[in-house]
Nucleic acid binder design. Structure first.
Lengths: 108, 108
DNA sequence: ATTATTCATCGTAATATTGCGATATATAAA
DNA sequence: TTTATATATCGCAATATTACGATGAATAAT
């Protein structure tokens, strides 16, 4: 069917899944890593950095922005994107939540 | 096209994206959180926990296993799944990699 | 040996994602 | 005003994902 039963999950679960889904594409990973390498924000040099069309890059950027992983502000004729640092703790928290200090004895 | 240009990215980038992609579905988030709540491993009670068919749960489990987020061993007629704790550092590392101690001045 | 239980896989239908060219919009420059 | 530049969005085609019933395979119980 290709249709996720979203009404079966808590909004918190859906939110986490949405964040990770946005991270689940190599182009978006590359974009985030590129942004994080710059000390200042970046605009559209990513088009030169990745072998994707401007339309595709813009799409990926809007997906990252939709889930709050990046912010973007218009700067003249270009757009300045930067990481939303506030979105990162959620990722770490999820990983910490999964982690158990007591090693499990099954599944060697 | 629906076809990711995988040859354009490093294997490291592809690996990260694959992990996050596996995390990018609410059913798989719910499965991981359920497993992590148990002190011991679990088998197929997840089918009773989520409103998905056994076939669908099995599929999600195999996806999680394929990227190494969980392990599974046959235990008689059932299968014991548990978290692969070794897979968690990658998630934290990625988040730490993105994080910049110096606040960016753009994008208020 | 037969039957029940548990889980994986196949096949199919529905929906989602990806990528791009073409086009629209908005600001800057001339 | 006209033109150039930068980005967003639309519409399409190709591929991927999701979900499930049906079926298969393997062990356990009778």
């Amino acid at each position: 069917m290709g249709l996720t039963k979203i009404d079966a999950y808590s909004s918190e679960t859906l939110h986490k899944a949405a964040i990770f889904k946005a991270l689940g594409h190599p182009a978006r990973i590359a974009i985030l890593e590129y942004i994080s390498k710059q000390t200042t924000c970046i605009c559209g040099e990513i088009v030169a950095e990745l072998p994707l069309s401007q339309a595709s890059i813009s799409r990926h950027l809007s997906e990252l922005k939709a889930v709050g992983l990046i912010k973007g502000t218009i700067a003249g004729t270009s757009v300045c994107y930067c990481l939303n640092q506030e979105s990162l703790p959620l990722i770490i928290q999820f990983s910490n939540q999964l982690h158990s200090p007591t090693p499990q004895t099954c599944c060697p």
